[in-house]
């Protein structure tokens, strides 16, 4: 059991959970993720680490309710059954910041994709780097943790589909205007958003790293559920990723593989709702 300090709703569909987990924190470098189990019989769900506090020995996670398991997670009060990490590889810039000293870096976040991006920007700011962020969502009230990200960025631009905040349009519209300013781009968000960013940056030959978030079970390389096609070869997001060169990822396949258990998951969710009502 792991102690939960906080588990609260931060937007219409997002939750923030803070857990005491010093063992995860000790060697964590942004880009890595954890797997959590709400209760002993729960599913294992991969989540990216959003924030960390070395003094308190805590990590924070942001998640959205997308099915029975995340809904169950949102009901947890004092402790969760399991949290394992850090898993996967660190972001390559955070791992070796000195290699990027003279590079202009831009982060592009789509929706809750801001959650894994925030710790990277924070980590790099702590090491003296100036990072620009482009942050988009469907509408203004889905732009979460704005106050937090604004404290660590050099410049930030917003985009919303309906124009309720920042530029009306997509993150790609904002990125295209200043694309020549940058040497490397890190894009994290829904698969379709990462695909669109990569389609654009390919045109401008801007190297782009994406973070894949496929289905996973163990998260340690054992099951192969998380396989993605990168440069025509199968790669396991859990141990080979989760970050890959976005220009080499087969996003169409990734989109289809997200739906493998769609029917079964909806059944489980319906079962759970029936049981709770």
């Amino acid at each position: 059991m792991y102690k939960v300090i906080k588990n609260e709703q931060i937007s219409s569909n997002s939750f923030l959970m803070e857990v005491i987990a010093p063992i995860i924190l000790k060697r964590f470098i942004p880009g890595q993720f954890v797997i959590v189990m709400a209760k002993e019989d729960s599913e294992r769900i991969p989540l990216t680490i959003y924030d960390y506090d070395h003094k308190k020995g805590t990590i924070s996670l942001i998640y959205q309710i997308v099915g029975a398991s995340t809904e169950e997670l949102s009901t947890i009060k004092n402790e969760i059954f399991a949290i394992v990490g850090p898993l996967g590889n660190p972001n390559e810039i955070c791992k070796n910041p000195e290699n990027y000293k003279d590079k202009k870096i831009v982060y592009v976040a789509g929706g809750v994709g801001i959650a894994p991006i925030y710790p990277q920007v924070k980590y790099l700011k702590e090491r003296g780097y100036n990072i620009d962020v482009i942050y988009g969502a469907r509408k203004a009230n889905l732009l979460i943790i704005r106050d937090k990200i604004e404290q660590v960025v050099h410049k930030i631009s917003y985009a919303t589909d309906d124009g309720s905040f920042g530029t009306k349009g997509f993150v790609t519209d904002v990125l295209e205007k200043k694309i020549n300013n940058y040497d490397i781009c890190i894009a994290i968000g829904p698969v379709i958003m990462m695909k669109n960013v990569c389609d654009l940056t390919k045109k401008y030959k801007l190297r782009t790293i994406v973070s894949m978030n496929p289905l996973m079970v163990d998260g340690s390389g054992m099951c192969g559920a998380c396989r993605c096609e990168v440069e025509g070869k199968p790669k396991f997001a859990c141990i080979h990723g989760p970050e890959f060169d976005g220009h080499k990822v087969n996003f169409e396949l990734a989109l289809k593989r997200m739906n493998i258990y769609k029917e079964e998951e909806q059944e489980k969710w319906a079962q759970m709702k029936k049981k709770n009502s």
């Binding site: 063992i23 000790k26 060697r27 399991a82 949290i83 394992v84 990490g85 850090p86």
Partner: peptide
């Protein structure tokens, strides 16, 4: 349990 050697330690 829940300790990925290689990553956590």
């Amino acid at each position: 349990l829940n300790v990925p050697v290689g990553n956590a330690i």
